[in-house]
Structure formats: C-alpha cells, structure tokens
C-alpha cells in the first residue's frame, strides 16, 4: 500500500498486467513518444505521461507508438484482439472517436454477436474525457453515453486512483471489448492504492456514502463532487447515499434501485451533455421500476446542451459543481431545506 496518483494507478495496472501476460501490448499516439526522433527515448509516455516507463521496460515490440491514424490503429487493435493479443489502445482524447468510431462500434463491439459467439475480442481502449482543462470543444467532452449505447462494449469510469487501478486491471483481463474513461483533470489526485494487482468486478456499484434522505448517483469525476456535496450537506442534517456505478455498461441497476427505494429521492449527476446521457438513463430506469417509491421528482445535474466552451469563465459555468448538486438535493427535499 502506498500513495499513488490516478495517473500512476493506470500505469501500474498496465505494467503489472504486461508483466503477468505477454500477450498484453499497448499502442497509441506518443504512447512512448519521440519515435524516430533524434532526442530522448520514451520522451512523453503518452500525452499526459500515463504510459511513461512502459517502453523502456517492455520494448518497442509491446509498446507501439502509432502514426496519427486512429482509424488504422484502433481497428488494428480490434483485429489483434480477435486474433490472440490483448491490446490496450489509447484513443488520446475521446473526442477523437469521430475518426475511428466505426472500428469500435461496427467492428470490435459486434464481432462476437455477428460471428455467432465464435469471436473473443479482449480489446481495451483507454481514453481521456472531461472538462476543466481549458481544452475547449474538441478535447473536453464526456461521450461515454455514446459508448454505453452500443451492445458489445463495456464502459468503465474510474472515479479515483484506487478505482483506476482495479478497473484498468479488470479491463485488461476482461475478454470483451472495454472502453475505459480517464478524467484528465484527475491525473494528479492521490490516495492509498495497494501495490499488489487487483481487479474490481464490472457491474458492481460502489456505495461511497450511506444516508437516509437522498440518493446521489454520479459518474466518474462527478462521484467526488457528489461525495463533497454529501459531506457538506450532512453538516445541515441532510444525509445522502452516494452511488458510484463504476461501469455504465454493465450497469448495477440493483444497487441503484435499492438505494433509491430506501431514500425515495434521486439526484443523478452526470458531466455528459443532458440529452440521452446517463442521467436520463438512470431516471428512466428508476421511474420505470420504482416510481411508487419516489417521494419527489428525480433531479438531474448535468452540463448544459452546448459544446464545452473555452473561456475559463464559461467552462466553470458549464461543469456541474458541488453547489449545484447541493441545490438539487435541497430542491428534491422540498420546503424547509
């Protein structure tokens, strides 16, 4: 056990799985960095340094820098997965899915079904998401609802360093294609993370706070905001249950329904755009299954239906905040709160 950052947690998970299984390879743009250039080897280790050190340890045969060709190398990873490797491909920013989505949702996701159960595609796509980096509209989106929509894909959203290592390890060991979302604003956040390898099962939500009044379901980085809001509200006597589903596909509907039934109130916090996102999905689930347990309408705290703005002044308005979460909680509790 030692203190590790979110970034180190991903790195350690990949490293340990590469040590354990020589079929595990990583590929991506600047995943090592400086390929073919006269300067330092392993110059970057990924654009934000997550894969630093892997190339010196495992060599260029297993740590493959790619040209900027997402269609080719994401598809290549899918083909390699279907033929016996366990590739971890980095789609640098999830916003770049636009140039390679076919290879993910028409190819990798569907092999198993289209081929009548005869294909095994242990593909992992790592990708960065989320606002707060002043990176504007094409480098800040969430987009995980789009992947969640696709049968055949699994989608994981680690909310801290412990979760990052466990979910990354699980993703690599999983025999289905997994897209794992890394929030770029969390890479330096640290906590105690075991040194030993461990996986966190997919489809098992983490209940990070237990309370009586309102259930907060939050995804990825938003889990931390929900926890903060819950802690702050407890000072005024409002106690919240906070649920981190960990994976949007598969989704732990059991824990969500059970905890919402207990409190009778639900606030869903989702950094993704508000239409057809996880918040609408959870709201639909709850109203379909346990409508009669609800004491108040469901409330969604999401970003607005606009592209991610650049100006810090605007981006700060765009991202859900603890203040907005607290206000939503008070609203579902009604007058007197």
């Amino acid at each position: 056990m030692s203190v590790k950052s979110y970034r180190q947690a991903f790195n350690e998970a990949i490293r340990q799985e590469m040590e354990r299984d020589e079929r595990v390879i990583v590929m991506g743009e600047d995943i090592s960095g400086g390929m073919g250039a006269p300067g330092e080897d392993d110059a970057w280790g990924g654009v934000l340094g997550v894969t630093k050190g892997l190339m010196p340890q495992f060599g260029r045969e297993r740590v493959l820098d790619t040209p900027i060709s997402e269609s080719a190398f994401i598809g290549c990873a899918a083909g390699a997965a279907a033929t016996g490797l366990r590739p971890v491909a980095e789609l640098m920013f999830v916003d770049f899915m636009g140039v390679c989505f076919d290879q993910i949702f028409n190819q990798a996701a569907k092999f198993r079904y289209m081929f009548g159960g005869k294909a095994v595609t242990p593909l992992v796509i790592r990708t960065m998401y989320g606002a707060g980096f002043r990176a504007a509209s094409q480098h800040s989106q969430c987009l995980y609802p789009l992947f969640t929509h696709i049968p055949g894909l699994k989608v994981a959203l680690p909310s801290n360093a412990y979760e990052a290592k466990g979910l990354m390890t699980q993703a690599i060991r999983d025999d289905d294609p997994v897209v794992i979302f890394e929030h770029k604003a969390m890479y330096d956040e640290e906590m105690e993370v075991p040194d030993e390898a461990y996986g966190i099962p997919f489809g098992e939500a983490n209940v990070t706070r237990e309370g009586d009044d309102v259930t907060l379901v939050a995804f990825g980085r938003m889990v931390n905001l929900a926890n903060e809001a819950a802690d702050s509200l407890s000072a005024s006597g409002i106690t919240c249950t906070v649920v981190d589903p960990r994976t949007t596909s598969p989704l732990d509907t059991e824990t969500i329904l059970e905890t919402v039934s207990e409190t009778g109130r639900l606030v869903v916090i989702d950094e993704a755009h508000p239409r057809c996102n996880m918040a609408t999905d959870i709201s639909a689930l709850v109203s379909q299954e346990i409508f009669s347990d609800l004491k108040a309408p469901v409330k969604m705290v999401t970003s607005p239906h606009c592209p991610v703005p650049f100006s810090p002044a605007l981006e700060d308005l765009y991202i859900p905040s603890t203040a907005k979460i607290e206000a939503a909680v008070r609203e579902v509790l009604g007058k007197g709160h």
């Binding site: 390879i25 045969e61 297993r62 493959l64 269609s71 080719a72 190398f73 994401i74 598809g75 290549c76 990873a77 899918a78 083909g79 390699a80 997965a81 279907a82 033929t83 016996g84 490797l85 590739p87 076919d102 290879q103 028409n106 190819q107």
Partner: peptide, 15 residues
C-alpha cells in the same frame, strides 16, 4: 472496414 483489422492480425502474427 477490413484493412485496419488485417493490420491487427498481422501484428499478432509478428508479435
């Protein structure tokens, strides 16, 4: 759709 996949199969063979 097939060309990138074939790069993958070739990579498997090579690796």
């Amino acid at each position: 759709g097939g060309s990138p996949l074939i790069c993958g199969a070739a990579l498997t063979a090579k690796t």
